[in-house]
Amino acid sequence: MLSVDQHRAAVAALLPVTPTVRLPLAECLGLALAEPVSAPLPLPQFDNSAMDGYAVRVADVAAARDSTPVMLPVCEDLPAGRTDSPPLQPGTAHRIMTGAPIPPGADTVVPVEHTDGGRYQVRIDTAGQPGANIRRAGDDVATGAVVLDAATVLGPAQLGVAAAVGCAELPVRRRVRVLVLSTGSELVEPGGRLEHGQIYESNGTLLTAAVREAGGHAEQLHFVPDEVEQLDATLAERLARFDLLVTSGGVSAGAYEVVKDAMAGHGVDFVTVAMQPGSPQGAGRYRGVAVAALPGNPVSSSVSFEVFVRPALRAAMGLPATRPQRTARVAAALDSPSGKRQFRRGALDSDSGVVTPVGGPGSHLLGALARSDCLIEIDEETTAVPSGTVLPVLVTSP
């Protein structure tokens, strides 16, 4: 029997770091940057106005007060996006909008709130200070500065700054390509007609969504019957396009274990892991492609993905491998089998630091899984957990 850590290491070893690809910005969200990005130009690119108002010379408005306003002719209108920059003559003003270039000769911007908003002549009620309301070129980012380090996970702000310095695409770690397969002749596509003894297929939907949530690319292969020859033929047509095959079902010690029957002795090791749920597991390579073979009960499949597959997927893509881990006091007493690490579903109250078990230990309790947002971890040596005990918690929901 393998420990959880031993099997986690075996699965992680199957997936090397993915290659670098260049993708359009719109396809990079959530991926890891493979190389640093430097700015070929400064941000801002030019001195520009931080306010809607009037570009003027400090000397021309030095005497302006509420009681003694200064009147200036408005000679130009400068909206953002105007590409010429007419000089400001002494004794005049240019009406200017936020983001528009500061005209040569101007050294301050008076906000429109301190004027009468005039279009051809403006009354200014306050003196301007040198440099006020002017964003200087390079204040944010200097030319040549590194704006994004390698291994940065690309979120909205990171993609925004890449666009601002002119990047149309970025070098990123490619998504792991995963084929998800649920086996079982009893499975029926959701919405189809059920006969006695049949169930709707849910693991494929669950695992495909889990791969995508982890950042991978997932495709689902539907409803392969419990026949070794058909399984092998079906996979032979498809596997070459993928980095990883994730299966659910067909890995236990009973009859009709089609995944085990097809792959044991052909590069995939089937083992027992000291955990509950999810004891039967498989890992290896089949037809040259990495395989993580998970048990078929839905909770076992989900927990196995969280514990073994998700960390390996994310590490291969250069992403943080582990979910947030916390400790919390359990709201009810729990028991756990000796010699196995148990993962119980829970609902975490972060404010109080209390986690409430959701459902029992059964591996079929999908409704309870859907109501949970964390896994409560009980180590192999513990068989009884009194209420109020502090335990590690793996947060599985945002």
Score class of each variant (00 low, 15 high):
136 R>K: 14
380 E>S: 14
151 A>T: 09
382 T>M: 09
298 P>E: 01
350 S>N: 00
332 A>R: 15
41 L>V: 10
41 L>Y: 00
263 M>R: 11
34 A>S: 15
60 D>W: 01
95 R>N: 08
397 S>T: 15
242 F>T: 11
12 A>Y: 03
45 Q>E: 14
158 Q>K: 02
374 C>H: 04
250 G>I: 08
375 L>V: 09
395 V>D: 04
214 A>P: 08
320 P>C: 04
388 G>Y: 12
287 R>S: 13
39 A>L: 01
162 A>N: 10
34 A>H: 05
238 R>I: 02
302 S>N: 08
189 E>C: 10
110 V>C: 09
337 P>A: 00
46 F>K: 07
31 L>K: 12
344 R>D: 05
189 E>D: 11
247 T>Q: 02
228 V>K: 14
304 S>L: 04
276 Q>N: 03
322 T>D: 15
142 A>I: 01
373 D>H: 13
88 L>K: 09
20 T>L: 03
5 D>H: 13
215 G>I: 05
125 D>A: 07
249 G>T: 06
240 A>V: 11
112 V>S: 13
278 G>L: 01
166 G>R: 03
339 G>T: 09
252 S>A: 13
106 A>E: 03
3 S>Y: 09
149 D>N: 11
267 G>F: 00
234 T>D: 10
381 E>T: 15
129 Q>Y: 03
165 V>L: 02
181 L>Q: 14
143 T>F: 00
167 C>T: 02
113 E>A: 14
313 L>W: 07
125 D>W: 15
324 P>T: 06
217 H>V: 00
323 R>C: 09
326 R>Y: 02
69 P>Q: 03
218 A>Q: 04
119 R>W: 05
210 A>S: 11
283 A>N: 12
6 Q>E: 15
175 R>A: 11
280 P>H: 05
119 R>C: 02
339 G>Q: 11
360 G>W: 07
253 A>Y: 02
82 R>Q: 10
